[in-house]
């Protein structure tokens, strides 16, 4: 390639990139994998004449690190509630004030004013769920609403239990199991936590994420898991049930935020408002199988979800749940040490 054609190519590339950036009708979404309904995207594209591009991430930390570096070209992302305060604090997201948007009236009261974003100044509910235990009841007939399945494994399940290796989730469950408060830095409590974890590990077969397939194939007979994953497992095999541990379980929620560096701010705001419409939220839930925090969306959801105990938390267990918070860095440092010791 000679100099002339090279500069021409560079010029063309520049032209292409600027025209892309300024073109009306685009929206770039940065989201967890397999977590957005293609039908719902089509509907959004049609309704607002916008072309949507979705890019995947695999963890909150990946998303945070990448967005912090900047220059991503993304407009919208879906951080979890424990990360929302960090994104706000680091100045990564735009104050779009969803609390004042047209469809905000649809947000369920319990999600309208969450501690991680008081007054919903930045975020719109995307999905929420719980973390509990999943048990194949063909192999174990006892009570499954307890963390004992994981931390004091009954004989029938020994060597067949999996633990999803999310450090913060496992630490929260173990702290609740020994009777502590979430995000505790109390050495007495943490010592018990460490002892419980180290003693429990020999009964585990694995620590991995791929629970739906492994529970289905019988490689695991029980696992810690997210509720939506549990629902998909029960649909495959009716003997698989989800338990809400009485010692305490967590609620989590992922939220739609608009990035400060977004180029398509108007479309991103439209999307935030769009997601608070019950019909759209239901379309999305039908795909990812989690509840969405939008009141009235139940009407539009598939029947197997509106009655599912995995999605609708049974009244008797509601009191045992709490929303997981962002732990302070010095506490996270302690948890990392226990986590490393557990997996050494």
């Amino acid at each position: 390639m000679n100099l002339k054609s090279m500069s021409m190519a560079a010029g063309l590339a520049l032209l292409a990139s600027t025209s892309l950036a300024s073109a009306a009708g685009e929206l770039n979404i940065y989201n967890w994998g397999n977590y957005i309904s293609p039908d719902m995207i089509k509907k959004f594209e049609k309704q607002y004449d916008v072309k949507v591009t979705v890019t995947d991430y695999d963890s909150n930390d990946t998303a945070l690190a990448k967005v912090r570096q900047g220059g991503t070209g993304f407009d919208v992302a879906m951080p979890s509630q424990t990360y929302v305060p960090i994104w706000i604090q680091e100045g990564l997201i735009l104050e779009t004030n969803p609390g004042g948007m047209e469809n905000f009236k649809n947000v369920a009261p319990e999600w309208a004013n969450p501690a991680f974003d008081p007054g919903r100044k930045y975020t719109v509910p995307w999905a929420w769920g719980t973390v509990g235990v999943v048990v194949n009841t063909d192999d174990y007939k006892g009570d499954i609403n307890t963390w004992k399945i994981v931390f004091d494994t009954p004989d029938e399940l020994k060597g067949k239990v999996n633990v999803v290796p999310e450090m913060n989730d496992v630490m929260h469950a173990a702290i609740k199991y020994v009777g502590g408060q979430q995000c505790t830095g109390d050495k007495e409590v943490l010592k018990k936590v460490r002892d419980v974890l180290v003693a429990a590990k020999p009964n585990w077969i694995a620590m991995e994420y791929n629970t739906i397939e492994k529970m289905g194939a019988g490689d695991f007979k029980a696992t810690s898991d997210w509720n939506g994953s549990a629902l998909r497992q029960r649909i495959n095999n009716p003997a698989i049930h989800y338990g809400y541990p009485v010692e305490g379980f967590q609620y989590w929620s992922d939220n739609v935020v608009v990035l400060k560096e977004a180029k398509n701010v108007d479309n991103a705001k439209l999307f935030q408002n769009f997601m608070m419409d019950p019909e759209n939220a239901a379309m999305n839930s039908a795909f990812h199988r989690y509840a969405n925090g939008i009141a009235g969306s139940e009407k539009f959801m598939p029947a197997d979800m509106t009655s599912a105990p995995e999605v609708v938390v049974p009244e008797e267990f509601k009191k045992n749940g709490e929303i997981l918070q962002t732990c302070p860095p010095e506490v996270t440092a302690l948890y990392t040490k226990i986590w490393t010791e557990l997996q050494k």
Binding site: D61, N162, P165, M207, E208, T332, T336, T340, K344
Partner: peptide, 25 residues
Amino acid sequence: PSVLGGGKNMMFANLIELQFGQGRN
């Protein structure tokens, strides 16, 4: 090791990954 070993016991690569991920160090 993650896929076939079940990820119960860390490899050195997992330990490094932990520091850049949830460990935040």
